Simulated scan of single mutants.
Amino acid sequence: MAPRKQQDIFRATLGLLAEKGYEGLTVEGVAERSGVNKTTIYRWWPSKAALLAAALVEADVLAVEPPDTGSLRGDLESLVRGIAALLTRAPAADVAVAALGAAAHHPELAGAARRFFADRLAREEQVFERARRRGELREDADPMLIMDLLGGAVWLRTVFRGLPLDDGFAAEAVRAVLDGAAEAP
């Protein structure tokens, strides 16, 4: 399938998910919105769960390129701002919340959610590799834990608490993770 057509299908999938939720997402609706025959979609993805899984990982609309600011702190702040943008701006925010809800209620999507986050962590790994080479990060530091702490802070603040993120949130979250919050002895 041509990459442009595939992205049309993914955009249609994520758009319908954002508008109608997982229950309202249908292959027929995706076919109609993307201008592709539903048999073509089924040829590539055997179910709507498989289609959504592919869209979450491969859609351009959710793509995040790891930054290279020259410092770990700058890269992490940029990543936090990117996560915040995904969770606060349409259509990505609606997609993220709908996908999370669908994964919580539909076991067949739990694997898709794991693949989505594994893909993101694999892309972000280069940030940590560069930081280790520059001597900014301990060899035993856990990139997944760092990203869970930072990404989790954004999710909790924006999605679950419904609070806005001020301009200093990214820097403060990164400072708390890298420097800690306790007074030095």
Results as ranks from 00 to 15, higher is better:
Leu14Tyr: 01
Asp140Phe: 06
Val177Thr: 14
Arg120Ala: 15
Glu23Val: 14
Pro143Leu: 09
Gly74Glu: 07
Ala90Lys: 09
Trp44Asn: 15
Glu77Cys: 13
Asp142Trp: 00
Gly15Met: 01
Val61Met: 13
Lys5Cys: 01
Glu19Arg: 14
Ala99Tyr: 00
Gly70Ser: 03
Ala2Met: 08
Ala85Leu: 08
Ile146Trp: 04
Gly29His: 08
Ala49Val: 10
Lys48Ser: 11
Gly24Thr: 10
Val36Ser: 15
Val127Ser: 15
Leu17Asp: 10
Ala59Tyr: 02
Leu72Asp: 05
Met1Leu: 14
Arg81Trp: 02
Leu87His: 08
Arg43Trp: 12
Asp142Met: 05
Ala113Gly: 12
Phe117Gly: 10
Asp119Arg: 05
Phe160Thr: 09
Ala122Cys: 05
Ser47Met: 09
Ala173Trp: 05
Arg133Lys: 15
Ala173Asn: 10
Ala122Leu: 02
Glu19Thr: 05
Met147Asp: 09
Ala31Gln: 03
Thr13Val: 10
Ser34Cys: 08
Pro107Gln: 12
Leu121Trp: 12
Ser47Glu: 02
Phe160Gln: 09
Glu32Lys: 09
Gly135Met: 01
Ser34Met: 13
Arg133Met: 11
Ala31Glu: 06
Ala93Pro: 03
Leu156Trp: 09
Thr69Gln: 00
Phe128Pro: 00
Glu172Val: 12
Pro164Ser: 09
